[in-house]
Design a protein around this nucleic acid. Sequence first.
DNA 1: CTAGGGTTAG
Length: 629
Amino acid sequence: MVQSLAVFTYEMVLTQYPLHGDRMIRTSVLHQTHLLVPKEDRLNSPESVSFRLREQECVSLIKQCKNMEEFKQTHCQILKWGMFWSSFCASNLLATCALADWGSMDYAYSILEEIDEPGSFQFNTMIRGHVQDMNPEEAILMYNQMLDMGTEPDGYTYPSLLKACARLPALEEGMQIHGHIFKLGIEEDVFVQNSLINMYGKCKEIRRAGAVFEQMDQKTISSWSALIAAHASMGMWYECLGLFGAMSSERCWRAEESILVTVLSACTHLGALDLGRCAHGSLLRNMSGLNVIVETSLVDMYVKCGSLEKGLCLFQRMANKNQLSYTVMISGLALHGQGQEAIRIFDEMLGEGFEPDDVVYIGVLSACSRAGLVEEGVQLFDRMRLEHKMEPRIQHYGCLVDLRGRAGMVDEAFEIIKNMPMKPNDVLWRSLLGACKVHQNVQLGEIAAKNLLQLNLDNSSDYIVLSNMYAQAQRWQDVARTRTEMVRRRLTQTPGFSFVEVKRKVYKFVSQDMLRPQCDSVYEMLYQMEWQLKFEGYSPDTSQVLLDVKEEEKRERLSRHSQKLAIAFALIHTSQGFPIRIVRNTRMCSDCHTCTKLISMIYERTISVRDRNQFHHFKDGTCSCRDYW
DNA sequence: CTAGGGTTAG
């Protein structure tokens, strides 16, 4: 049968019926098949064994198609045989056309129109095809059409439909659909529930996602995956790790790559090195090989959690590196102030034939500025413009200003700001102000501060830097004026918090936090620390406290800054000589910086603190940032 | 009779 019909090709139909577009052509063929296969025969045949065999033959022909041409020929053959009236064959045609990567939704649509009574399967397939085609709106419209035609959706309809809502994202539609799911009574379907979690997660509705999750009787690995990914996308890293812990303890789930990478990312953000190491180990045990993405995120994790050596080691052993791997490594070295090494890796990257992009340049330039490599930084900046023909962005000028400013060339830094082609933003003025404070150029500092405060960002730390600069210059009236202005603007510091990892658990400390279960011992420790600090000649810098309260309360508030709480906690719960790693959400105040330097000496600990810009490695009473941050 | 959910890095 196949041989005898193979001569009837799509092309022949085309020449026979030179009409416009696929749909017209097929309709014509359809009329022909009407003539070829009498209606009675169509109705009776499904019972026969030979009909089933022919169905099977058609499906295997459809499955063999590798491209649209072959598919169209098969389509024609099926029409010619009269087998299109078998809903099994038609459905397979539709599904293949809608879902294969060479398929076409337009063509699938016309097949759908020729099916007499499309059921839920046909619509489900169309919806899924549209989602695969990155056409979420079309998918939702298809669902509407399905309802209009009175076809009842089933459990297979919703996973892809909800995926469409997640893509857009379309919360309103998603919630309506959730309603439909209840009406149909399929809210217990695991696939539907997982899709709902994902949809709510993508719509940033964590609470609703959690609610669906809570109500599930039988959770699957995908339920956890969807919920963890939802929290990760919101930057709720702490909650991510909590969920991962809950998942691991609830049942012995097989570790999965996607979840582990998300967890790894959470570790990176929280500075949870030990937990990150566990995820690394789990990946090695469960995966046959690690791909570039996983390896790059591992490097990123180690570096950003403070273990630069391990990150470098992994990086050097990577068999395949891409541009992003280099970017991660170079920015990581910048974070740790390793300018020379960053430049070396950058050269290596160019040697491997990777084109540098603007982000790599930000990395390598900031590495130069942190390490005080003025000459090299300027060279790189020119190289970016001249050799790689890239237009520097404001971030690159920021690096340049920082580069000169840190090195004490504040006037040159100011010149750069004045001459650059775009309007300076807060970052640049803040960089200049910081440089002026460190190098005690009050005059220029005032100019920078004036410009900075004009932007009305109400950033309290800007006022503090300015007021400290006045204090250094003994201009007390200006100090008072700045303070008054702060009070007038009702500025409060953004709530600071610090993470510290102890025995593979991450603890979060919020400034002034007194409600933790470990509270008593922490405050006992703080008291001891203060006592020892005094011996080393420390006196609290209460100018860091913005509130209008008595001196005594200022001291007390200062001692309860989150970083000090975290250090105290870590000192209690880790053994002598064990390094302490802290991650904070804000930059630390100068009092915390001074204290931490002293503590590193008194307690003989290395303490590394990652703030939002860089690493501070405290050791023997000094800090790697050379007191500039 | 066919089919469905989570996919990460600067």
